[in-house]
Computed example of a mutant assay.
Amino acid sequence: MGSVSDDKYLRDIVVSFLLAGRDTVASGLTVFFYLMAQYPDAEARILEESDRALGQGSKKIPTLEEIRKMNYLQGAIYETLRLYPPVQMDSKFAKNHDVLPDGTHVKKGTRVSYHPYAMGRMESIWGSDCLEFRPERWLNDDGLFVPVSPYKYPVFQAGVRVCLGKDMGLLAMKVVAVTLLRRFHIRLADSNWAPQFIPGLTATLKGGMPVVVTERFV
């Protein structure tokens, strides 16, 4: 096993980190803009919130402090990833014999898989509106973002194996999302288009997403 003083090991870790973040962030942003085209009211709320944080009509790239003020944007990103997680299914292998919380015995070396895509659409987990895109479900009465247990929302995994790039990936998505929304109208080229995914580690869209992009004028 490598160490922090091993240049090749560090290189491999950095490359893995960047590649893992590239494909997942790209997948998440694509379906985010798809949902914005489907839910213009949510898009309007993000634009209103960004006007309060950045100033009316500003085209600048938001700072970290400004991004932290955008609770509805955070909810919209989390809601996007609930319905369309970039990694739709994942697995773990038991290093030793174990017992799951429901009493199931897992033998050493057993592969245990879980399905964030399916979990995000289960009524028993998210309620009767589980198939609806509702960023408000992530906000409290004061409009502040409130996370849930990562075991309920395993998009970034949970426990000691939580995604190392979670914060960086979320920040990248929020900065790109709000910057592009404030500058451009992004609409589907075909109103009947719906996401279809290519089987693989990450949720890559088959054929991409055809859109019409026009510049906003303030």
Rank of each mutant, 00 (worst) to 15 (best):
R187V: 04
H105R: 15
E48D: 11
I46V: 15
E79L: 07
R22C: 12
A42T: 01
P210V: 07
G55F: 05
E132A: 15
K166H: 05
C163E: 07
D142G: 15
A42H: 00
L170Q: 10
P116V: 13
G169K: 13
A94L: 00
K8E: 11
Y39E: 08
V4N: 09
T80K: 11
K107G: 06
D51P: 08
S50W: 05
Q157M: 09
G169D: 14
L201E: 09
W126A: 03
K69A: 05
T24C: 00
W193M: 10
G208Y: 01
W126M: 00
I67K: 10
L73D: 09
R68K: 15
V176N: 04
P116D: 04
G28F: 14
K8W: 06
L19Q: 06
C163N: 03
L18P: 07
F32V: 01
I186K: 08
Q74E: 03
E48M: 11
T30G: 09
L144V: 10
T214V: 08
P150L: 06
H105A: 15
V87S: 06
Q56N: 13
P199A: 03
K92N: 03
A44F: 02
A20D: 09
M209L: 12
L64M: 14
I46D: 06
V146G: 09
V218F: 03
D7M: 07
C163L: 08
M36E: 12
R187W: 12
Y114N: 08
R11G: 11
R22P: 07
V212N: 04
R161H: 07
G21R: 12
